[in-house]
Amino acid sequence: MEVILSFLTGSLYAAGLYLMMRRSLFKLILGLMLMGHAANLLLFTIGGLKRGAPPFIQEGMSRLTGDFADPLPQALILTAIVIGFGLNAFAVMLIRRVHETTGTDDLDEMRHADGPIR
């Protein structure tokens, strides 16, 4: 299954990057969110995929035994998901505020912050 998820991860990265190369603010944010998903999926895939072996210590046992899923990547992904949510929520609000301020959705018109001489 790692192979398939590897390809899926790559595809999500590709879709995300493609969206970020568009001129629309909205697509930019969409792309960022897809990239976030892609990174999480990558982390999950790299952690090793195990079916039906969640990292819970059963009642009566004192440690995980057998072929259990590596809990560490899961914890890392959980952290990354929540961090990603915070960043995305802020970014979503930002594009809305940017749209209100500039009156456009077109990133090509947002060049007041740079340009040849300023």
């Binding site: 930019l28 930002l94 940017v98 060049r111 912050a113 740079d114």
Partner: peptide
């Protein structure tokens, strides 16, 4: 205005 536009670029590339 310029500030928000700069922020968009900053946010995009840093994310």
């Amino acid at each position: 205005k310029a500030q928000l536009e700069g922020t968009v670029k900053y946010v995009a590339l840093n994310m």
